[in-house]
């Protein structure tokens, strides 16, 4: 049956993506101001090299953390986008469009630009993380409240975009009253980069993401029932209220954890789920979730590699690269879809 086909396709795609991800990661670790050939990278990773060796220091102290962050960051944003697309039954829903990233941005702005800290300079990444988390979740809850009242998904998207604008306006207000050094800190954060990671941050990112990846996968069956709409899902025995809360919490947390550490990163959340759907030709969440995680990882590490190499020694904001790569893909898909209809 065609179901078996899809399962086979999913497995093949997963195996190929995993291989691609590994190869890309090894190259990404190797490429930089000092080039390390893949075999050196592998030797360092498997601790076949003396810790005092420069290659060892480059890999373990600089590049590896960044690559891990970009893999998990890309994966988390893709999965978050996928979950939101399923929830809102809209192909262009993603944490960025729905204002969730903007919420995190506002919260971080409030802290870095001194609003709530009343002049105290916040540099503690954990407080920043909690702030971004709170901001992202606040917008999520707001969207949830709206989604309970507003039936039309288009209206809901407009609400999300409005919330995003409002957050930006508030940030603008904060910027107007801030000193230059805070603004510089904040701007650096909003540019988005996977380069600011330390090992403790990596541990948190990997732990939170891994748990949420598994949880999302466990929701697979119910997410599938949701594809026909909430009413149908109810008649198939799905606790839709609980599912809504679970999706919003998981995608909010995923977005928050990435945004808090790497700044707002657009377009991964929108484009990667589409790419996966195109590749697998299925909407089955049980297949899409793992492939979104893998493809998101590839997308993340690829874009990060471009962002730090294309104008080296300077660095492009990760959001800039994801937009360059993501916009054409989304546009192409929309055109193709319209032709279909």
């Amino acid at each position: 049956m065609n179901n078996g086909n899809i399962r086979r396709k999913t497995r093949v795609t997963a195996a190929v993506s995993l291989l691609l991800l590994a190869v890309l990661a090894v190259f990404a670790i190797g490429i930089g101001s000092v080039y390390l050939p893949p075999e050196t990278v592998l030797r360092v990773l498997f601790r076949q090299v003396d810790p005092s060796d420069p290659a060892y220091i480059i890999v373990w102290n600089m590049r590896l953390s960044r690559v891990i962050a970009s893999v998990f960051g890309g994966a988390a944003l893709s999965l978050s986008g996928l979950l939101l697309q399923i929830l809102f039954q809209n192909p262009i829903a993603d944490p960025y469009i729905l204002g969730i990233s903007s919420g995190a941005r506002l919260a971080v702005g409030l802290m870095l630009l001194g609003g709530v800290m009343a002049g105290f300079h916040v540099t503690n990444p954990w407080i920043l993380f909690l702030g971004a988390l709170a901001g992202a979740l606040a917008v999520m809850v707001l969207m949830l409240l709206f989604s309970a009242r507003v039936r039309s998904v288009t209206t809901l998207l407009i609400v999300g975009i409005m919330v995003g604008y409002l957050c930006s306006a508030l940030v603008g207000l904060l910027v107007a009253f801030s000193d230059d050094s805070s603004i510089a800190d904040f701007t650096r954060w909003t540019m988005g980069s996977f380069g600011l990671m330390t090992w403790p941050k990596i541990y948190v990112l990997v732990l939170v993401c891994s748990v949420l990846f598994v949880l999302s996968f466990l929701l697979g069956k119910n997410l599938n029932a949701l594809r026909m709409g909430e009413s149908y899902a109810v008649t198939m025995g799905v606790n839709t209220k609980g599912l809504r809360v679970a999706i919003i919490l998981i995608s909010g947390l995923l977005t928050a954890v990435v945004t808090a550490f790497a700044g707002p990163v657009s377009f991964i959340g929108m484009s990667v789920p589409h790419i996966c759907r195109m590749l697998l030709k299925t909407d089955d969440s049980r297949a899409l979730i793992p492939s979104c995680v893998l493809c998101g990882g590839i997308f993340g590490v690829g874009c990060d590699l471009i962002s730090r190499t294309i104008i080296a020694p300077n660095e492009l904001a990760i959001g800039t690269v994801t937009a360059y790569v993501g916009v054409p893909i989304v546009l192409y898909l929309l055109m193709k879809k319209n032709k279909h209809d």
Binding site: M1, N2, N3, Q89, K221, N224, A225, R227, M228, G229, S231, Y232, T235, M236, G237, V238, R277, L280, K281, T282, D283, D284
Partner: peptide, 25 residues
């Protein structure tokens, strides 16, 4: 079970897949 008037738009879904969704419970 119920058949509703809600507009159902299912991309990448064959007739077999849609029918099989009924097995959910």
């Amino acid at each position: 079970s119920a058949v509703l008037t809600d507009r159902v738009s299912l991309e990448n879904c064959t007739v077999w897949d849609v029918t099989a969704m009924g097995r959910n419970p």
